[in-house]
């Protein structure tokens, strides 16, 4: 049974993959089928997100009920999620809100504030990590890294006396850094394409394990 299921899984991957690939080419006669298949994947992915969130809430509720270490955090998470779900549901049913949107209020008060505060904390870790680079050993690569970093940061200041750095910083960002980024992106794209072709040829059976 497992063997048949494995063969069926490979046939599904190859068959659906090739039909979708063909359908996504401009002017393809099977474009409609590809659109429907992609739509099905979107719906399944959305269902997976919902199941994931339900699982997350269930895991944290169990931590609270069992009194595991750190249960107060789990309680906060559970009630925060529950509050959003209840508020949005009541709002959609027109039972609360009206002139004011409580869900937007929650979004601005919690999501935006915490997200931007966490993002702003990164500056301390980035600067500290850059300063630690020379702690063990100075290599040509670490030296080049820090010199480039400093030139770009100084260039960003736009101080008239240091105008030279602005020009150099601009050139570094648009020419050599852009070239390296292109190399990285093309390398990633080649890797993705190779992995995709391997899956479509049935050479990568990892999804059957």
């Amino acid at each position: 049974m497992k063997r048949i299921s494995g063969i069926l899984a490979s046939a599904l991957v190859i068959g659906l993959g090739l039909i979708t690939l063909w359908g996504l080419f401009p002017g393809s006669p099977v474009a409609f089928i590809a659109t429907v298949l992609v739509q099905l994947v979107v719906v399944v992915s959305a269902a997976a997100v919902l199941i994931g969130v339900i699982n997350l809430l269930w895991v944290h509720l169990r931590r609270v009920l069992r009194g595991d270490p750190g249960w107060p955090y789990s309680l906060a998470l559970f009630f925060a999620a529950l509050a959003v779900i209840v508020i949005v549901t009541l709002e959609r049913l027109n039972l609360i809100g009206g002139e004011v949107s409580l869900s937007t209020f929650l979004f601005n008060a919690v999501q935006v504030s915490v997200e931007s505060a966490l993002a702003s904390l990164i500056v301390f870790f980035l600067v500290y990590a850059a300063a630690r680079l020379f702690r063990h050993r100075v290599t040509w690569s670490s030296l080049l890294f820090v010199v480039t970093l400093l030139i770009i940061l100084i260039g960003w200041l736009h101080i008239p006396a240091l105008d030279f750095f602005s020009g150099v910083s601009e050139w570094i960002r648009t020419i050599p850094a852009s070239a390296g980024a292109r190399g990285l992106l093309i390398g990633i794209a080649l890797g993705v394409a190779t992995a995709g072709v391997r899956v479509l040829l049935g050479q990568d059976p990892s999804y059957r394990e």
Partner: peptide
């Protein structure tokens, strides 16, 4: 695995294109 195969087959084609 059949459900995974469905997602992977279509996902791979979309990412390839």
């Amino acid at each position: 695995n059949l459900g995974m195969a469905f997602l992977i087959g279509i996902g791979v084609a979309v990412s390839l294109i």
